[in-house]
Design a protein around this nucleic acid. Structure first.
Length: 498
RNA sequence: GGGCCGUUAACUCAGUUGGUAGAGUAUCUGCCUUUUAAGCAGAGAGUCGCGCGUUCGAGUCGCGCACGGCCCA
């Protein structure tokens, strides 16, 4: 690398490491048996207080040193493993003068393994009295400052490992994220759903209106698209007899990066045969309550100054009604395309002139209503023209049996009774193809094989997608999607940060 | 795409009207066997994001660029 200019601190550290090597110290051994975790040791003392004694059990434990208080012939260290943090007391007369003089050459950030008994210090802190100590891994670079830690968001994202070492809150977010996914999985497995994996590389990208990433398969000599949604594959599986399926995996959309968009993001999609969108509205509420309870211990959460209550039942409102009641759109305008265009421009909202009325309505909704939907709210009654995969309402063929879920101003979920009439589906695709030819790069492609699958018969089905990143933002009170994605996309930093 | 803000030592941050670059932590040296952001004494450490300009002189003023943050579209 070009940035190997040795700074003072790192340069000195490298010199010290060279000396340790020259003295025959193995800086990267892997022969220490860490038989106990810090968590196990603490549990043991909780349950058997006699363990806190020089006659008590001898523990073998390893971790990264996070702080060192060196005295002349004894030292305290704080070290950490995946289960927590513990103090150890290293005395020259216990570990021997040879080990102690090696220890004095170690640094914060190094990994050590220790064996010893537990005791209580004068200040009452449980502490490992080490009788053996072994260097397990030498750190070349110093950790950030112990009190202020690592704050610079750019460095936190680019060097997430440092963020995880230094900031417990970051660790907690990603532990919670893992638990959220596990809790969702349990909700669905408990309801007899089958977890599946469908292609990430698709010859025809489908299931959403979005711009895909394109890649190329050399041997097959063909372009493939990173998927924008798994929907059309999951519904093929319903055709195949998997009546209840779900997938939790990445989608890719070739669009901007912001506090609420990352080009790759994680989506749950699930499909249930013999169910309607109304069943999914019920299931969604159950899922959110179970997941929130499991992960946060409560069915209400604090998010950016608002208390979000997942207790039910949640508000449910037709799209047009929400535009009138919340968006302040006069009811007379809702069927008046020209009137809506005028209204939009009076609000400073730019609308493409070729947009059809359904699209104009959803754009107005995005700006006038969505930010105001703080408590969980299902919006229903989406126009057919913006819902090319949804079943039509039996009462009104212009709208679909569809809902979107909004919480804290975020679109969190999208679900509907599935369109399983192959002829209608073909017409909808054709309409999309026409839109694409008219210049909408996000319109669907024709997918003949999907039509063929529907022609074999898909039972009446309802399906839904839930954004896992945004759900994690809600449950961890994170204002930016980058806080809940371990390695968010960043432009390359061609210099500077090393 | 637009606006505002940020970028100074490994980290967190000061830096006045333009006049030799500062602190704490970390590091190094010495002392110290119950510390908790340990303590005491001393030392070293900088391409002030990058480039151009104004000026006798730029971390500081101007223009451009890069990266990041927040807001708007």
């Amino acid at each position: 690398m070009s940035n190997e200019k040795a700074s003072d601190v790192i340069g000195k550290r490298r010199e010290k490491i060279a000396e340790l090597k020259a003295d025959g110290v193995n800086l990267f051994p892997n022969d220490f048996a860490a038989d106990h975790t810090i968590g196990v040791i603490k549990d043991k003392i909780e349950n058997e207080p006699d363990s806190l004694s020089e006659d008590g059990p001898r523990f073998s434990v390893a971790g990264r040193m996070m702080a060192i208080n060196k005295f002349g012939k004894s030292s305290f260290i704080r070290f950490r493993d995946r289960t927590g943090q513990l103090q150890a007391y290293i005395r020259k007369d216990r570990v021997g003068s040879e080990t102690y003089s090696l220890f004095k050459r170690l640094d914060v950030g190094d990994f050590v393994g220790m064996k010893g008994v537990m005791f209580t210090t004068k200040t009452g802190e449980w502490t490992l009295l080490a009788s053996e100590l072994k260097l397990l891994c030498k750190a070349v670079r110093p950790l950030p400052e112990k009190f202020h830690g690592l704050k610079d968001p750019e460095k936190r994202y680019r060097h997430r490992y440092l963020d995880l070492i230094m900031n417990n809150s970051t660790r907690d977010i990603f532990i919670k994220r893992s638990r959220i996914v596990q809790a969702i999985r349990n909700v669905l497995l408990n309801r007899d759903f089958l977890e599946v994996e469908t292609p990430m590389m698709q010859p025809i990208p489908g299931g959403a209106e979005a711009t895909p990433f394109i890649t190329h398969h050399n041997v097959l000599g063909m372009d493939l698209y990173l998927r924008i949604a798994p929907e059309l594959y999951l519904k093929r599986l319903v055709v195949g007899g998997f009546d209840r399926v779900f997938e939790i995996n990445r989608n890719f959309r070739n669009e901007g990066v912001s506090t609420r968009h990352n080009p790759e993001f994680t989506m749950l999609e699930f499909y249930q045969a013999y169910a309607t969108f109304k069943d999914l509205i019920t299931l969604t509420q159950e899922m959110f309550r179970e997941v929130s309870q499991e992960v946060t211990g409560s069915t209400s959460v604090e998010f950016q100054g608002n208390t979000i209550d997942f207790g039910g039942p949640w508000r449910c409102m037709p799209l047009l009604e929400s535009l009138q009641e919340i968006g302040g759109v006069d009811s007379g305008l809702l069927n008046d395309r020209e009137g809506l265009l005028g209204f939009a421009s009076s609000k400073g909202i730019t609308i493409t002139k070729t947009d059809r009325i359904g699209k104009i309505i959803t754009k107005l909704f995005d700006i006038l209503v969505e930010p105001k939907l703080i408590q969980p709210t299902f919006i229903t009654g989406y126009p057919v023209e913006v819902s090319p995969l949804s079943r039509r309402s039996d009462k009104n063929p212009d709208i679909t049996e569809r809902f979107e879920l909004f919480i804290a101003g975020y679109e969190i979920a999208n679900g509907f009774s599935e369109l399983n009439d192959p002829e209608d589906q073909r017409d909808r695709f054709l309409q999309q193809v026409a839109e694409r030819e008219a210049g909408n790069p996000e319109a669907h492609f024709m997918d003949e094989d999907y039509i063929t699958a529907l022609e074999y018969g898909m039972p009446p089905t309802a399906g839904e997608g839930i954004g896992i990143d945004r759900l994690t933002m809600l449950l961890t009170d994170s204002a930016s999607i980058r806080e809940v994605i371990l390695f968010p996309h960043m432009k390359p930093a061609d210099k500077g940060i090393h």
